[in-house]
Design a protein around this nucleic acid. Structure first.
Lengths: 342, 342
DNA sequence: CTGAAAGCGCTTACAG
DNA sequence: CTGAAAGCGCTTACAG
């Protein structure tokens, strides 16, 4: 490390306060406050005079002080998984962008917090320090310490992704229907043994998808074959073994529960010299950029992560501001058929 | 969207305030405040009594109120590029984790803001709303509106990545040396025509790497061949054309300025049936997980993004708290030689 | 329609 | 060593 040394002199230009504005205009702080917030009765002309002045002198209320007076922070917390993988990362990032975007549009800011499946300390700290008015959980578990904590604290929060906990505001894509539809289409196309690979069992989303898979088979009058369902294959080697098992059991199509798994599956098939789609059909569950350039192009489900973030944030802010909200909001999806299932 | 409707009843359990604590103990708020902050003289016994009580009753000071009294927020802003690509994303994410980690350890929180190369509005809003005490810029440009704005506002800030602006606190890996070393090693291994591909010219980091490339050639007494340097190849098609150009000009090694580019390069070579490393050597600039599983494994530089975030945050907080800091901090790197350059 | 005053939960000179 | 009081910059009953 090399470096010159600097001394910080603290002489930021003084910011205007509401008192300055009131004094300059010869009115009370109350009046200025009302002009800005739009609450309470105020003369139209007075209001305009105030607004014009603050516009011109670029006065911005101190949100901290405002918050203290109202016992609010104008911040929401977003809890991002710390143990992301390269593949869900773009999803989280895009979703976060959506959250941030609508938060800002309602003059809130986003406080970031990281957490793992069983570690709630960061979230607790943020809540106990009174730093946020509400929280968005970007991922859920069947047993979820974060949800339990937030419920116990009676803090407004919404989950991105479904949960079975009662009374939790949740926003999700309709993964069950999406999976059901994808599988139904594949069955309709004549595939008889559709294998499933990937996913972590403790994630609620995995269970929803499995449910969709089951429903699709039921609707088509097809029996389930447990031998061609491989979950919890997190390691590369497990994925390989999973593929081998699917091959051994005569699967004619492999549906991957996420795109990272899909990449490994494609690699494995390539190494085994199995042609897609001629000798094996493949589909995946999220149209990430990683799969985008694959040859052949891969059939997948498509979700709008940004929209999901937008909606989650909007609903949270409604809850924070005491409005009624739906407990459960399900967003759509698209099945994008490509060459890999031709 | 379907949903039951919920009504939010606002009856959170009342939080303890400093007054409650003072009253319960029969001391003044001043005393309580001093016991907590450790500032000012206070009897040892009194202090212990207070600390014990707040521990037991789980009192947490309201950071907002504290902040207002001190005109601080105990938040730092982190400005993340909105136009990330799949490839730098893991870097930003890991770095962000580092920032967050040390922020929390010093009882600050991280406010997230998104920005694009020429759009400073979000940052301005955050500053004008008095929401943060300092800012970390996660990416820099040769002409950088964010840096210019922050300088003009005299807000403490540090950049992750180098900049040529004067008087800016910056933390970076030593990309120039890293590139110089990598290229020198490759030259030593006997490569004669090392092509460079990728990078965006307006990023400071690209210029530093180019500089390292040049220095390595100078040190080895090798002439530069501008025909085998391809920057600003953002589109897939441009990358392909770049590779073709490198091939046409007889390059015996391709160094990719980022891993996304590298993937395209590898794909292109595969399609052209050019074997790595036998017919062409390849190296890349960041050991991302994306390249991790490639066959053959790819030589690359390795940076500790988390450490970078840790250091950036630590320095920012020193600046925020009025301490002296170095203007420029350069962190190390590793050259990881693998099969692709055998 | 407008304002004086109290209050949000802290900190910090100042006085003792 | 301890405390009363003023202050941070807002909001909001309450009174007029």
């Amino acid at each position: 490390m090399r470096g010159e040394v600097m001394e910080h002199t603290k002489e930021y230009e003084k910011k205007l306060t509401i008192s300055d504005v009131a004094e300059a205009l010869g009115v009370s702080k109350t009046t200025v406050s009302r002009a800005i917030s739009g609450k309470g009765r105020i003369g139209k002309e007075t209001k305009e005079r105030v607004l014009e002045y603050i516009q011109e002198h670029n006065y911005k209320p101190n949100v901290l002080a405002k918050g203290l007076a109202q016992l609010k922070t104008y911040n929401i917390g977003v809890m991002l998984p710390e143990d992301y993988t390269v593949v869900d990362l773009p999803f989280f990032q895009t979703c976060l962008t959506g959250v941030q975007e609508t938060a800002v549009s309602m003059d809130y800011d986003v406080l970031l917090t990281l957490g793992k499946e069983n570690d709630c300390t960061q979230l607790e700290r943020m809540i106990e320090n009174h730093k946020v008015d509400g929280v968005i959980l970007m991922r859920t578990f069947t047993k979820d310490v974060h949800i339990e904590y937030l419920k116990s604290q009676e803090i407004p929060f919404v989950t991105v992704g479904s949960t079975n906990y009662q009374g939790v505001i949740q926003v999700d894509n309709d993964h069950k229907s999406a999976c059901r539809e994808l599988i139904s289409i594949l069955l309709l196309k004549g595939m008889k043994k559709i294998g499933l690979i990937g996913g972590i069992e403790s994630h609620v989303v995995t269970q929803n998808r499995l449910q969709g898979y089951i429903e699709a088979h039921k609707a088509a009058g097809m029996a389930l074959d447990k031998d061609i369902i491989c979950v919890n294959v997190e390691k590369d080697i497990l994925i390989e073994q999973g593929v081998e098992r699917l091959l051994a059991h005569g699967a004619d199509c492999i549906v991957c529960l996420d795109d990272a798994v899909c990449i490994h599956v494609l690699n494995k098939l390539r190494r085994e010299n199995i042609q897609v789609p001629d000798q094996m059909r493949v589909a995946s569950f999220y149209d990430s950029t990683i799969l985008e350039n694959n040859l052949p192009s891969v059939t997948s489900l498509s979700f709008d992560a940004r929209e999901l973030g937008n909606v989650a944030c909007k609903i949270l802010l409604e809850a924070v501001e005491g409005k009624q909200t739906d407990f459960r909001t399900l967003l759509g999806y698209e099945v994008v058929l490509k060459e890999s299932t031709k």
